Amino acid sequence: MKVGLLAVAFILIFIIAWPVQGNTESPVKHVTQNQELTDLTDRILQYTDANQTDAAKSLLSSFDKKWKALMPVYSEPDWRTVEADALQLRFQLDSDVSSQAMHENALSLRLCVDALTGGGAPLWKDMKDQVLSTVMGMKQAIDTRDQADFQGRLNDFLDLYAVIYPSLIIDGPNDQVQMINQAVTGLENSRSTAVNDKVRMKQLNLIEIDMSRVFGQNTPSGNNNMIPLIAIISSFLILSLCYVSWKKYTERRFAFK
């Protein structure tokens, strides 16, 4: 009876472990592909900043090919975000736009791919001081009633926000990101409207608080990629223990006979 139970357990564990065993190389391969995407976006940014648009477009084509192969691994909102960013950059590289606009879009792609594929602290969080300093600058402009300064600092803030927004979609808490985006949209839409200084200051305070929270959020570790490998090792350990127990049991049984 015990031998039968052990045999059944052995077979069940083997069946459970078998599909995972077939993908033993997938975690390592996945990490390698992610690194290739990250390296490509880094080089795209470098060539864009150097005004070598042909080289940047060539690298972007290589990125598109690798991305299409890896895209099904990610959720639809995430891959759509990366697709939109890459498409926007291609449009700008093919158009007569300012080098600053191309830099910002290339940086945005670099940051959102890092947010999607990287482990540990994402690069977009390094822009915390830049983003929050523009908010502080707008508040100071309101205090001094300098409308021209306020509009200029608002432009700077919107440019920076556009750079990190794709990363926020991928990496940030959905509810907080939606609240921030609504507040930023409201601020932008009312920029040409006569708004009471207290109301404007309230808008900026809310944006500052929410942005600080998002920048301070802990990012899930990239160790989740190791879960399949851990499952494989655990399955083989269980199989080994079951086999040893079954072998000892059969040896004792034959010894008694």
Rank of each mutant, 00 (worst) to 15 (best):
D49S: 03
T53G: 01
T53Q: 12
L59G: 05
L59F: 12
L60H: 02
F63H: 02
D64V: 08
D64T: 06
D64C: 03
K65C: 06
K65R: 09
K66C: 07
W67Q: 00
W67A: 00
K68E: 15
K68G: 12
A69C: 10
L70A: 11
L70Y: 14
M71E: 15
V73G: 03
V73W: 10
S75G: 15
P77L: 03
D78T: 12
D78F: 03
D78E: 13
W79Q: 05
R80E: 06
T81S: 05
V82I: 15
E83Y: 07
D85Y: 01
D85C: 12
L87W: 04
L89V: 02
L89F: 10
R90W: 07
R90Y: 06
R90Q: 09
F91Y: 07
F91T: 14
Q92E: 11
L93H: 00
S95K: 13
D96M: 08
V97Y: 05
V97F: 00
S99E: 11
H103C: 03
L109C: 11
L111Q: 07
T117D: 10
T117M: 13
G119V: 03
G120A: 01
G120T: 09
A121V: 13
P122I: 13
W124T: 11
W124M: 14
K125C: 09
D126G: 07
K128M: 10
Q130C: 08
V131Y: 01
V131L: 15
L132P: 03
S133M: 03
T134R: 04
T134F: 11
T134N: 12
K139L: 05
Q140T: 14
I142L: 14
T144V: 07
T144R: 10
D146C: 04
D146H: 02
D149S: 09
F150Q: 09
G152K: 07
G152L: 13
R153I: 10
L154E: 11
L154N: 01
L154D: 00
D156L: 06
F157C: 05
L158Y: 02
D159L: 03
D159Y: 12
D159A: 09
L160P: 00
Y161R: 09
V163F: 01
I164H: 01
P166L: 09
S167V: 04
S167Q: 06
S167T: 05
L168R: 03
I169E: 14
I169A: 05
I169M: 02
D171H: 05
D171K: 02
Q176P: 00
Q176I: 03
